[in-house]
């Protein structure tokens, strides 16, 4: 759905995006991670043709960008660096105007405009306040309005830059469910965020940007596959360490990291010797560990 080759963008002397090879496949929820200032938003702008690349190729929905923007962008819904709207108009009027501003298509026909706008407002939970002027909206409501504008396209690809910014926990959860629902209905989602938890809960694939370079890109499952070690929690930690004889790599209080991935037989072994086990699981790395591992400590610019 999105492929870039050697994508580079230089602003003066600053290399904002440096040789990025993105590969987002149909049906992915792609988590695009990176610290503030790592080049995420510039990359999103490059993909949408807002910023023009210094070098490299971009293909979105299998067409070159920005050359085919006219054919590609009607099939893409996007939220770029925060929502925007005309403050003196209502949320509904904003969406009506925005929809009318671009070309009509079978998916965004004039005839169905009012209905689509009302549906989009209802989907993001703004149906009650759609007629109030936007300047009276809270940050969270503006964010929802921006999402509604992205949804109006009935797009094949959603590009969402920090979609849960400014939302309360309840709102974050609603948006997460909405994204999963759209994904289940066949939409590919490109989600840019610096919130690891958000990506970990939703995404099927992640890319990590560090100072303009893509330092990691893989399926989340592959990244989080078992490490071949088992985590054991036991109140009888000292006896367990003695018994397992050298297989324990690390002990932190009642928590042991044991070499070997067969949790079931380890459990049988411990319990067979009369040791109590409170918790036992194959070790998987958290996304946080993975990301911190590949990014440099002073990543913020």
């Amino acid at each position: 759905m999105i492929t870039t080759r050697g994508l580079t963008k230089r602003f003066g002397s600053v290399l904002a995006v440096d040789g990025v090879d993105l590969d987002v496949r149909r049906g992915d929820i792609y988590g695009f991670l990176g610290a503030n200032g790592s080049g995420k938003t510039t990359t999103v702008r490059l993909l949408l043709g807002l910023v023009l690349a210094t070098s490299g190729d971009i293909s979105v929905l299998d067409e070159p960008m920005p050359k085919s923007a006219r054919r590609v962008l009607p099939r893409v819904g996007a939220l770029v660096e925060g929502p925007a709207a005309y403050g003196h108009m209502s949320g509904r009027a904003n969406l009506m105007l925005y929809d009318a501003a671009g070309p009509a298509s079978p998916r965004r026909s004039r005839r169905t405009r009012g209905k689509r706008v009302d549906e989009a407002l209802a989907t993001v939970g703004l149906d009650g306040v759609g007629r109030r002027p936007v300047k009276a909206y809270s940050l969270g409501m503006r964010q929802r309005l921006g999402l509604a504008a992205a949804l109006l396209a009935n797009a094949e690809l959603l590009v969402l830059d920090e979609p849960t910014n400014g939302l309360d926990p309840q709102g974050i959860r609603e948006i997460r469910e909405l994204i999963l629902q759209l994904h289940a209905a066949g939409t590919t989602v490109f989600l840019s965020s610096h919130l690891l938890a958000e990506i970990e809960q939703m995404c099927t694939r992640v890319g990590v940007l560090d100072r303009g370079r893509l330092v990691l890109q893989d399926d989340l499952d592959a990244l989080q596959r078992p490490t071949g070690r088992t985590i054991v929690r036991t109140p009888d930690a000292a006896s367990a360490v003695a018994m397992l004889d050298g297989r324990v790599e690390l002990r932190e209080g009642d928590r042991l990291v044991v070499r070997g991935s067969d949790a079931a037989s380890l459990n049988a072994l411990l319990v067979g010797r009369g040791l109590r086990v409170t918790e036992l699981a194959a070790e998987r790395r958290t996304l946080e560990e993975i990301v911190l591992d590949v990014t440099s400590p002073e990543a913020a610019r």
Binding site: L48, G49, L50, A69, L73, G82, Y86, Y98, A101
Partner: peptide, 10 residues
């Protein structure tokens, strides 16, 4: 901020 949204409308 509407400029970017108008341009990607497109």
């Amino acid at each position: 901020g509407m400029l970017r949204y108008l341009l990607i409308r497109p």
